[in-house]
Design a protein around this nucleic acid. Sequence first.
DNA 1: TATTGTTATACTCTATAACTATA
DNA 2: TATAGTTATAGAGTATAACAATA
Lengths: 146, 146
Amino acid sequence: MPAPASAPQIPVPELAHTLRMACMRVARRVRYESGGTVAPHLFSVLAQLGSEARTVGELATIEQVSAPSMSRTVAQLCEGGYLTRMADEHDGRLVRLAITELGEQTVRGERERRDRWFTERLEKLSDEDQVLLARAAELLEELVAR
Amino acid sequence: MPAPASAPQIPVPELAHTLRMACMRVARRVRYESGGTVAPHLFSVLAQLGSEARTVGELATIEQVSAPSMSRTVAQLCEGGYLTRMADEHDGRLVRLAITELGEQTVRGERERRDRWFTERLEKLSDEDQVLLARAAELLEELVAR
DNA sequence: TATTGTTATACTCTATAACTATA
DNA sequence: TATAGTTATAGAGTATAACAATA
């Protein structure tokens, strides 16, 4: 009476398509819903900066953008008070960027706002579905990590 | 010995965060992996056009962009042979855009390429995990649809 | 001489305002 | 006169090339 132990075969290319579309829609929708106080590329840089300061070159590499572009982006973030420039102790050419308290507040606030929209939806699901999605999140993280 | 019938409680805000991040990483990674033969905003318009033709205004609304912007985008797609302009039979002001064979080929090719990367990863999962992710895709679609 | 970062310049995508043609 | 689409012009982000400062 119970289903056989082995799960049914799933057509993987089809799964890849529907799952990819679902993820893209979630990502797009969340981005769209959250108003955002800073421009997307500014937030992206800000979100990268944790406790340790980074150089302009490092940020340019991380964000897949040219050095001049990052130089401008960083200038805007400094002007807005989200970052501060610090000279490197050993190499005078380097400019180390550290996130300010305002910068951290901004990142936290934006993340909370983005999560809030999604949280409200997820709360309406059954416990079983929530558990399933939690496991799905684990699987997806493993997939893209490799 | 078996787990209780009711699923365990999941902290939803935490789930929202991890699941959102997972979806964003998948979306970003897939976009990054696929080289892309046409610019993102061109592809986005092209992918919207199914069998029925759309007007410039409709496309502008769908893509959340101004009419002049869409006018330019459409002009590029027509120039590249991806779209063709057609006069509306009843209203001379309207311009109906229909996708060409080249346009359809481009959309198909790009989708296949994007799906390929993800397919290769998903194939390595167990049947059980594939079934779980298929169900997760359904749930996510329902969540963002509303 | 090589490297880090900035400035100079150009190109692309987007937007608002003005314009043309159809209703 | 109102609407669909296009052209005119401007603003923002990015890129390559040239430059300044430091190693």
